[in-house]
Computed example of a mutant assay.
Amino acid sequence: MTKWIVLCLSTLLVYASELPTVASVDINRYLGRWYEIARFDHRFERGCSRVEAFYTLREDGMIGVKNSCYVADENRTKEANGRAYSVDEKSNSKLKVTFFWPFYGNYWIIDLAEDYRYAVISEPSKEYFWILSRTPEMAQSDIDHILSLATTLGFDTTKLIWRSKTMLTQGAD
């Protein structure tokens, strides 16, 4: 009996520590242009501003991914093309993305507005974090909601790099 209780508690702890994702994502509604509002720093976007992602449905059923950003130091736009597929076809909230095959990364949708106006992306290690929006600016109430959720999930929101100084000020409150 004691072993069973320990096993149950251990299982609960594993599930409690796993990063939750949204219950359901309609991939067709998710397709299109997204503006990066904020992110954690990482080498592949270092020096980038005005970051955008554009998702399409490919003929092979995978999702086409086109990321672009402006690199001020080089006075140019940089693009990266990749592809993604759902690893959780029940919810479509967990994707694998590659920009350099055969290496894939996790892309987990951990928050999504009902009307798909914003999405929050991360992965199990919580090393990566993005706030995406259908528009280049977001409502303060959405930013507040996302920052509260991120803090609850254990993310350090002081590490966020914001799209604009206005949002940095808004996000800091």
Rank of each mutant, 00 (worst) to 15 (best):
T2G: 10
W4I: 15
L7S: 09
L7D: 06
C8R: 03
L9H: 00
L12I: 07
L12W: 11
S17E: 12
E18M: 15
L19H: 08
P20A: 05
T21L: 04
T21N: 14
A23Y: 03
A23R: 14
D26W: 00
N28P: 00
N28G: 03
R29L: 14
Y30P: 04
Y30Q: 05
L31S: 01
L31W: 06
G32P: 13
I37P: 01
I37V: 14
A38N: 01
R39T: 08
R43A: 03
F44N: 11
F44L: 10
E45A: 07
E45I: 08
R46C: 04
G47N: 00
S49N: 13
F54Q: 12
L57E: 09
R58T: 05
E59K: 08
I63W: 03
G64T: 05
G64V: 11
K66C: 09
S68A: 04
V71G: 04
A72P: 14
D73N: 11
D73H: 10
N75S: 05
N75H: 10
R76Q: 14
T77M: 09
K78N: 07
E79V: 11
A80S: 12
A84P: 04
Y85A: 05
S86Y: 01
V87K: 06
K90Y: 02
S91C: 08
S91K: 03
S91G: 04
S93W: 02
S93N: 02
K94H: 13
K94F: 00
L95R: 02
K96Y: 01
K96T: 02
F99M: 12
F100L: 15
F100E: 10
W101S: 11
P102M: 11
P102Q: 03
P102Y: 03
F103Y: 14
Y104M: 07
Y104W: 15
Y104A: 07
G105D: 07
G105N: 07
N106T: 09
Y107F: 14
W108H: 13
I110R: 04
D111K: 07
L112D: 01
D115F: 03
Y116K: 11
R117A: 12
R117F: 02
A119F: 00
S122E: 09
E123G: 11
E123Q: 14
P124I: 10
P124Q: 03
K126T: 05
E127T: 14
E127C: 13
E127S: 15
Y128S: 10
Y128V: 05
F129G: 09
I131D: 03
L132A: 02
S133Y: 01
R134C: 10
T135F: 06
E137R: 14
M138D: 06
Q140N: 08
S141R: 15
D142V: 06
D144A: 10
L147M: 12
L147Q: 06
L149W: 08
A150C: 06
T151R: 11
T151W: 01
T152D: 00
F155M: 05
T157Q: 10
T157W: 01
T158Q: 06
L160D: 12
S164G: 13
S164H: 07
T166W: 01
M167E: 13
L168C: 06
